[in-house]
Amino acid sequence: TTYKLILNGKTLKGETTTEAVDAETAERVFKEYAKKNGVDGEWTYDDATKTFTSTE
């Protein structure tokens, strides 16, 4: 399943996707990605669109 991440950081904005077996796995991948890029925001998830959003 393809999951999408929308980053709305103070210094980094953008989108990326990952293939994962479930939302929990995708969330771990995306949170590590955000951390590596210095984004520490509030997380939301929309199951209908398989989209995570992190907003600082």
Rank of each mutant, 00 (worst) to 15 (best):
T1R: 10
T2K: 12
T2Y: 09
T2C: 14
Y3V: 03
Y3T: 03
K4F: 13
K4I: 13
L5Y: 04
L5Q: 01
L5N: 02
L5V: 03
I6G: 01
I6H: 05
L7R: 00
L7P: 00
L7V: 08
L7G: 01
L7C: 08
N8R: 11
N8C: 14
N8F: 11
N8H: 10
N8S: 08
G9L: 07
G9P: 02
G9K: 03
K10N: 11
K10E: 08
T11P: 04
T11K: 12
T11E: 11
L12D: 05
L12M: 14
L12Y: 15
L12E: 06
K13M: 10
K13P: 04
K13D: 05
G14I: 15
G14V: 15
E15Q: 10
E15A: 08
E15V: 13
T16G: 04
T16L: 15
T16M: 15
T17K: 07
T17A: 07
T17C: 13
T17N: 05
T17V: 09
T17F: 14
T18G: 02
T18A: 09
E19Q: 14
E19C: 15
E19N: 13
E19W: 15
A20N: 02
V21G: 10
V21E: 12
V21A: 14
V21P: 15
V21L: 13
D22N: 11
D22I: 02
A23N: 06
A23K: 15
E24D: 10
E24M: 11
E24R: 11
E24T: 10
T25E: 14
A26M: 01
E27Y: 15
E27K: 10
R28K: 12
R28Q: 11
R28G: 06
R28M: 10
V29D: 04
F30Y: 01
F30W: 01
F30R: 00
F30I: 00
K31C: 07
E32V: 07
E32R: 06
E32I: 08
E32S: 06
E32W: 06
E32L: 08
E32D: 11
Y33F: 12
Y33N: 01
Y33L: 05
A34I: 06
A34Y: 02
K35Y: 10
K35G: 06
K35Q: 11
N37D: 02
N37W: 15
N37H: 15
N37M: 15
G38C: 07
G38E: 05
G38W: 05
G38M: 06
G38Y: 04
V39I: 13
V39Y: 12
V39G: 03
V39Q: 04
D40G: 08
D40K: 10
D40Q: 13
D40Y: 13
G41R: 02
G41I: 06
E42F: 13
E42W: 11
W43G: 00
W43V: 03
W43N: 01
W43M: 07
W43L: 08
W43I: 05
T44Q: 10
T44D: 08
T44H: 11
T44G: 06
T44V: 09
D46C: 09
D46P: 00
D47G: 08
D47C: 07
D47S: 13
D47K: 10
A48G: 09
A48D: 11
A48N: 12
A48Q: 11
A48R: 11
A48P: 06
T49L: 07
T49C: 04
T49P: 00
T49M: 05
T49R: 06
T49I: 06
K50Y: 07
K50T: 03
K50D: 02
T51S: 04
T51G: 01
T51K: 02
F52N: 00
F52E: 00
F52Y: 05
F52A: 00
T53S: 07
T53D: 01
T53K: 06
T53Y: 14
S54P: 03
S54N: 12
S54Y: 14
S54C: 15
T55G: 04
T55Q: 07
T55K: 06
T55M: 08
T55F: 08
T55H: 07
E56N: 05
